[in-house]
Design a protein around this nucleic acid. Structure first.
Lengths: 335, 335
DNA sequence: CTGAAAGCGCTTACAG
DNA sequence: CTGAAAGCGCTTACAG
């Protein structure tokens, strides 16, 4: 049997109040008593029960994290930042994969609430009105990571996707490219896919490049395979492209893979720029020029923000837009 | 304020016992009463407090997971299997990165115990005697995932690394290779690195291939960069190699990256076989021939095993060795 | 400096 | 079928 505070009290021949004090404010206890208690604790290998504590303090030092799919490196790197920060700030993380599946999200939210998490981090998905409603019902602080909401007042940490999309495209243009395609995400996703596309289009306009949306943009889901297929469609419609902006590293790798298999040399025949800068970007060939999102930091800031809210402090900026950066490697050629 | 069972009882004009019954054994309650209670619950948006419940039942439906580094795709894919299974079996997972850092491990273990997790999954690292001691002190079931212990009786799920290493090497041999090198892990790791190396050596012996350990094996850590460097050292010592067994996909990609940058064609000039079959293996070029570990399944089985133990059932096999599989892709040439 | 008591939010025999 | 009471393992005023 696991020992409890009573066992310790009995063994040390003091009251449970005293044991509790030794644990929580040892300087209120006489040294002699303290030592007796410490000895008993050690002997019994006693650890306080956080459930009982949590019940009293209405704090669990546990945060919930909702993530679409942890086996995606993008989320894994963000999560690493969250976990390190949580550990530093004395929280634990309960991880729930949502799989972009609403019933599962609802179920997770329910048990997270029951388990009395102090706060919630919601990652990456757009915030629909019913989600906002759910967050309200939780009655605990919520922070958005790698997503945001313009309609609702929810603290968030993310990159400026429109600007990043602009810069990725501009970089291609400055390298001499004029016939540029894009592998975009799903147009159902207003927080990430649409802004990156808008940035792309703005860059084309800014540099007076005419482009036919129908032929130069292909949408794909977020996985490697989708990038592969989108690349195929793109080249079929616009065979004369010299560069492609793939709006995630995985999509970029899919696109490059397509090129490899069809005898198209990257970057000699076709330049590719990615987005995210997951570790994928350096492990592939050619190494990927890409827009770096500070993934670790996004996770870190999200947890720090949530911690402030949990402690009842101000959150600082409501919506934080963290700086991205273009990382030059070998997948884009100057022409 | 969050509502509690008393609020519900008051609003429904019943005792808290009745509210509790409605929640836990509704058929013991008269329909009329039940409806009143349900109405009150809905009106107050009441959710039971799992801390209070856990205190009574001595069960939290929460499992601890210790993982070296979640931003490594290998662990991320295992974790995905764990999380899906946990969700199905009605558990949540508290994730702790250990970072191969002992103080952090100790700290995590301490709070996991305090938070009354029902069981623990320990991933990947070898089990030293002091770790075993710690597990004992936890007084809760522990399952090992992607590692095992031969000295201690701890349930585990992993692949047979020696045999897998043998088969990877044998595959190279059967494809005509005789001058084969290996990029191995650290020889401090008896559970994964050493067996794979042993399998490699056994294959060479079996096929009567003489090899000088000093020149044909290079050790590297588990990351991409280590594979890159190990490849450099390997080719310097044994420039005539026609094939390399890299004992992880990341190491393999590092090795291939070295080749790309030094004008060595894979697989035309040099064949490379990997190990793990993370999603990396298909996203790179050339696509990697590799030993597939069923990562998702390892996570799944580990959680199922742990669930059995938590429920006081038998665990079945103590040490489960799950089947691996060689996946042929494009990084190995027949010569 | 220390202990007895109330209370956190529940569940579960025990009565009725 | 329903309620009062004890108890899960703690903390924290309140007395002394």
């Amino acid at each position: 049997m696991r020992s409890n505070i009573k066992d310790v009290a009995k063994l040390a021949d003091v009251s449970i109040s005293t044991v509790s004090r030794v644990l929580n404010s040892p300087n209120l206890v006489a040294e002699e008593t303290r030592d007796k208690v410490f000895k008993a604790i050690a002997e019994l290998n006693y650890t306080p029960n956080a459930l009982a504590r949590g019940l009293i303090h209405k704090r669990t030092q546990t945060l919930g994290v909702l993530i679409p799919d942890i086996s995606n490196l993008f989320y894994a790197e963000i999560l690493r930042g969250m976990e390190d920060t949580a550990h530093r700030l004395d929280y634990n993380l309960i991880l729930c994969n949502t799989d972009n599946n609403k019933p599962r999200l609802l179920a997770s939210l329910k048990v997270l609430k029951e388990k009395q998490i102090d706060g919630l981090i919601f990652t990456s998905e757009p915030i629909y009105p019913d989600y906002n409603e759910l967050f309200q019902q939780l009655q605990i602080p919520v922070v958005l990571a790698a997503t945001h909401s313009l309609e609702f007042e929810i603290p968030s940490v993310k990159v400026n996707d429109e600007q990043a999309g602009f810069e990725a495209t501009e970089y291609l243009i400055r390298n001499g490219h004029r016939r540029i395609g894009m592998i975009a995400g799903s147009m159902m996703d207003p927080v990430t896919a649409v802004p990156r596309l808008q940035g792309f289009m703005r860059a084309l306009r800014t540099y007076n490049i005419e482009a036919d949306y129908e032929t130069c943009v292909q949408n794909g889901n977020y996985r490697f395979e989708d990038g592969y297929e989108a690349m195929g469609r793109l080249l079929q419609k616009s065979p004369d492209l010299t560069a492609v902006f793939a709006s995630s590293d995985e999509r970029a790798l899919g696109a490059i893979s397509y090129c490899h298999e069809h005898g198209i040399k990257v970057p000699d025949d076709l330049s590719v720029i990615g987005f995210d800068n997951t570790r994928l970007a350096v492990m592939c060939f050619p190494k990927l020029t890409t827009i770096a999102q500070p993934l670790y930091q996004i996770g870190q800031l999200a947890v720090e923000k949530l911690d402030n809210l949990v402690q009842g402090k101000q959150v600082g900026e409501l919506r934080t837009y963290i700086a991205h950066e273009l990382v030059e490697r070998q997948s884009v050629a100057k022409i």
